[in-house]
Design a protein around this nucleic acid. Sequence first.
RNA 1: UCCCCGCUAGCUCAAUGGCAGAGCGUUCGGCUGUUAACCGAAAUGUUGGUGGUUCGAGUCCACCGCGGGGAGCCA
Length: 467
Amino acid sequence: MILKGNYIRDLLAGEARSEVTAHGWVKTRRDSKEVCFVQLNDGSCPADLQVVITPTLFNSELIRKVTTGACLRVVGSLAPSPAAGQSLELQATQIVVLGEADPATYPLQKKGHTMEFLRDIGHLRTRSNTFGSVFRVRTSLAQAIHRFFHDQGFLYVHTPIITASDCEGAGAMFGVSTLDLMNVPRVGDGDRRGHVDYSQDFFGKPAYLTVSGQLEAEIFALAFTNVYTFGPTFRAENSNTPRHLAEFWMIEPEMAFCDLQDDMVFAEKFLKSIIASVMDECAADLEFFNKRIDNSVLQTLENVVTSQFEHITYTEAISILTNSGSSWEFPVQWGSDLQSEHERYLTEQVFKKPVIVVDYPREIKAFYMRANDDGKTVRAMDVLAPRIGEIIGGSQREERHDVLLERITAQGLDPAAYWWYLDLRKYGSAPHAGFGLGFERLMLYLTGMKNIRDVIPFPRTPGTAEF
RNA sequence: UCCCCGCUAGCUCAAUGGCAGAGCGUUCGGCUGUUAACCGAAAUGUUGGUGGUUCGAGUCCACCGCGGGGAGCCA
């Protein structure tokens, strides 16, 4: 196997020396009269290792098999390269073709492909430059997130993926069942045959894939003070947009002794820290995105790290939009949620940086958000980013038992279903707050990629679960 | 789910209702320490599917499928 020190990344960063071994897949090959040049990539960095082969030193049948897409092991000496483009190159003395790739049918060519085509070959797109960079950034970002929370003393809580509480209220859920779909047991029989008899199902009641770990994270926050979850979440919405997935990863910190102000400040600090971390660790990959995908990415990230996020209240946002002189497809009025066009106007036209909007009308937000004293708004905040819209949604949670109970009832929900959530307010309640961050949305922001299906290894969307 | 656009060679795209085309890739040849190399030649098609209109359909119509953009739902 390859260990640290032997990746192509390490070879290229090191010194010239004899007897090195490199493994990887052939990106391209250029033939010259006396030598042929092979670009070898092992996924460790955007750069390829240039392998120089003198064909006369090798069996011609072997050389014929060194084609785009083939997998090689090459032994040789790592030497200064006489030509521009790379400082070191591998002069091959030994070549093993570990896996051939028939060039007549291998779908990846040197020149660019569309993201749509690459998505159709999800098992091979990982070998393209773009997806190499995407997934290196993804792992770096995930690590930066864990590191940030760990450094802040947060407990990493693994909230359940299967949940039997359908009270999360964040959208349509995927059912989880072991019942025979061809012969579903029902309550009663004959003419009285009623609803599905879930008492016979695996968990003895309806179960679902989670849409959020927040409520469970609150349990932990009210014992460990600061906690976070980072895991897959699921939405069975029929959403067909470049910003939605049926399976996506979400980061949800939950902090006790924290109000909305603390929550906002922390969210901003968090975003800046992890972005700076990726900029440091994946500089070459971000250069690639800036050059090939979106030439404003580096500028935007620099801007986010160094600027202060704008803070406005929902009421102020409405006022800005009303007085903008723009005509809106969706009318702007106090009490309606901000539409995509409104969010984009605020982030892209007015402030040209991330904007945090707070104190939304109670009616358009979830029951668990803490009521403000004005009786009209709740302590909610959304972090809006240019180009991709809402990237973080958070709030201070309602910690007062009587107020929460009233809100649950007012929204037509069954308090019995929330018994343990209410219990947390009954025994040692504490002010607390948190937020949710869509991991793939953040990936879009960092990479400049346009479609969320291209920043997750294996996208799940309505009608599609190949690979 | 709604609105709009698209589907032609492996890929990206041309083709007035009238002979199916180009570039890239591939193969072959040439040139060259090359850098998403260069020059020449060749091969490559059930025009997404099913119907329909027409003397004639890649082109027009209907339905279906898939993809893209926008919207809604949201992260």
